[in-house]
Amino acid sequence: MGLESGMMGPWIWPLGFGGLLCFWAAAGSTAQELPAHLFSEVFFCQPGDPSLGLAQTLDQELLFHFNFSTHQWHSILPDLRPEEGNHTSLDQVQLLGNICQLLLGPLTNLSKPYMPEAKGAPQMDVFTLQPLEMGKPNTLVCAASNIFPPTVSLHWQLDGQPISSGVSTPSHVSPVQGWVFQAFSYLEVTPQEGQVYSCTARSPSDLYSSVVFWVPKDPLDPELLANVLCGLAFGLGFLFSIAGAVLTFMTLRLRNAE
Score class of each variant (00 low, 15 high):
D91Y: 05
Q123E: 09
A121L: 12
P150Q: 01
M250S: 11
P131C: 12
S210D: 14
D79T: 07
T251N: 12
H155A: 04
G85R: 03
L80M: 13
S40H: 07
A55W: 00
P175G: 04
D79M: 06
R253N: 06
G120R: 02
S89Q: 01
T151P: 01
L224H: 11
L158F: 10
A257P: 03
G105F: 13
P78L: 04
I147T: 05
V126Q: 12
L220R: 11
D159H: 06
D159R: 02
H155R: 02
P175M: 03
L77P: 00
D221H: 11
V152H: 00
L38P: 00
A121C: 04
Y186E: 12
D221V: 09
V215Q: 15
L239F: 15
L207M: 06
N67P: 10
G237R: 05
F249W: 15
E117H: 12
E61A: 11
H87T: 02
C199D: 08
M115T: 08
L38D: 00
L20N: 08
L102M: 07
L110F: 12
L34G: 07
T190E: 11
F181Y: 15
P116G: 04
L239C: 14
Q192T: 14
M134E: 09
R202E: 14
Q46Y: 14
S241R: 06
S168G: 06
P122T: 12
